[in-house]
């Protein structure tokens, strides 16, 4: 890069090498995020590896007990093992978030790509329709959809997907538009490459890295929304083990058994954190700009 030589000298007090190694380019966050995700994956598999009690098996003699040898994380108000419920909730909570994300992508990817490539009136109408949905606050629309369908985990997934897809479609459209403006895309088109070849070979590879960032960050926000809905009692219904629903059940026993509150809360936080860290880490890693410093 030629403008490297034109840099403000003050910056060069610190040697270039050392700076870039200590800077944001070092993907610590990304690594922590990936490790956390691996940990959750392992947790989800652990019922097959270890001997855990069933998530809704009740030990009525040990209700609201703190951590003991038999129940490493304690039990809840019905004497159910919290570790077993925590682990049993992994496929439910994360599965719901991933299912919602899949639904969102299934809507937003075709919508954004078609809108960007078609242009003109089609683009305008498609974006107008997306704008109408986006004009509602997202969680409010999700609540209304859940009200329409009746409270259940499936309804909350559909509600969240219905409220989240338009903003995603807009992002996809913007990514495709800026990718399509690149000169080598025009060159490919001029050399007679077919439309699908231009999209698949020249535009898609450019869109994928920023899209990975978006997907990761969106999964975090979807996970938060879904567990909030379960916490409010209009998502996953008891006795399904789900982190938000577990927290909701823990509310009356707030002072007696704080461990009931801490266990699922940490689970949600770490899961959301993992997706956020991966997204932010990827973004920082892909970011080629270097800000000028005073």
């Amino acid at each position: 890069m030629s403008d490297q030589t034109l840099r403000i000298p003050a910056v060069r007090v610190i040697p270039q090498r050392w700076r870039s190694r200590m800077g944001a380019k070092r993907p610590i966050g990304l690594l922590i995020g990936l490790l956390l995700l691996l940990g959750f994956g392992f947790m989800g598999l652990s019922p097959f590896l270890f001997d855990l009690p069933a998530p809704d098996e009740m030990d009525l003699l040990a209700r609201l007990s703190g951590p003991t040898a038999a129940h490493p994380l304690g039990t809840d108000h019905l004497g159910r093992d919290l570790l077993a419920r925590l682990v049993g909730a992994v496929p439910v909570s994360l599965g719901a978030a991933l299912a919602a994300m899949a639904l969102i992508l299934a809507m937003s990817l075709p919508w954004g790509v078609v809108s960007a490539l078609a242009g003109g009136k089609v683009d305008m109408v498609m974006m107008r329709l997306a704008d109408i949905i986006m004009a509602f606050p997202m969680l409010v629309l999700a609540l209304a959809v859940i009200g329409f369908l009746g409270a259940s985990l499936e309804a909350s997934i559909i509600g969240v997907a219905a409220a989240w897809w338009p903003s995603n479609a807009r992002l996809v459209r913007a990514l495709v538009l800026s990718a399509a403006q690149r000169e080598f895309v025009a060159a490919a088109r001029l050399t007679g490459a077919s439309r699908s070849r231009v999209v698949l070979r020249h535009i898609l590879p450019q869109v994928l890295p920023p899209l990975a960032v978006i997907i990761s960050l969106e999964t975090a926000s979807v996970l938060l929304a879904l567990s909030s809905l379960s916490f409010l009692g209009i998502g996953a219904q008891p006795p399904t083990p789900e982190w938000g629903a577990m927290l909701n059940e823990a509310r009356p026993f707030f002072t007696q058994a704080p461990h009931m509150l801490l266990v699922p809360g940490f689970a949600v936080t770490f899961a959301v954190l993992a997706f956020n860290l991966v997204g932010e880490g990827l973004r920082a890693w892909l970011d080629k700009r270097e800000p000028y410093q005073w």
Binding site: F231, G244, L247, V268, V272, L273
Partner: peptide, 8 residues
């Protein structure tokens, strides 16, 4: 802070 659920 972004990751901590508001209900918790």
């Amino acid at each position: 802070l972004v990751s901590v659920p508001s209900f918790w």
